[in-house]
């Protein structure tokens, strides 16, 4: 599926939730369930420091596609990371670099990607796109 098809799919899934609590319960479940990154990548080199929560991000190229793994020390941040990975991982580097992420806004979580929130997610999305650009070349 393309990046936008996955985004639309997530938007449809979230439309089924009644209120913010159901949305957050789902995000929290995502955050709790997924081992998202190998322990060897949870180091300074892969760390994106936010004031509020921290994010670790690793990218590699596999069969011409970018594979992202990531983690956070906060569950809600980690749940949102799970969604971002679902959208951007296993896509071509070119698509990742050009991706326009609209789903976060549409599912009512845009405050988590506000620069003032300082939870590491804004820098993480930026970093994911930079990986897309960098991995186009090789």
């Amino acid at each position: 599926m393309s990046i936008n098809e996955i985004q639309d799919e997530i938007i449809e899934e979230f439309a089924l939730f009644g209120d913010w609590m159901e949305r957050y319960e789902y995000i929290i479940d995502l955050g709790k369930s997924l081992p998202l990154i190998g322990e060897q990548y949870k180091d300074e080199e892969h760390l994106i420091k936010g004031c509020q929560s921290q994010v670790w991000l690793h990218a590699e190229k596999d069969n011409g596609r970018v594979k992202f793994t990531a983690d956070s020390d906060a569950i809600i941040t980690k749940g949102i990371i799970a969604l971002l990975i679902r959208v951007l991982s296993n896509q071509s580097p070119d698509d990742v670099a050009k991706a326009e992420l609209y789903f976060i806004d549409r599912i009512g979580l845009k405050e988590h990607l506000s620069p003032t929130r300082s939870n590491g997610l804004v820098s993480m999305v930026k970093q994911m796109k930079l990986y897309g650009l960098a991995l186009q070349a090789n």
Partner: peptide, 22 residues
């Protein structure tokens, strides 16, 4: 072991303004 960011986020949704972080 609940992260302050998570707790603060849910409290915000409940209309409660607290500070989280360092």
């Amino acid at each position: 072991n609940i992260h302050p960011y998570d707790l603060g986020t849910i409290l915000d949704k409940l209309g409660i303004a607290v500070r989280t972080g360092h």
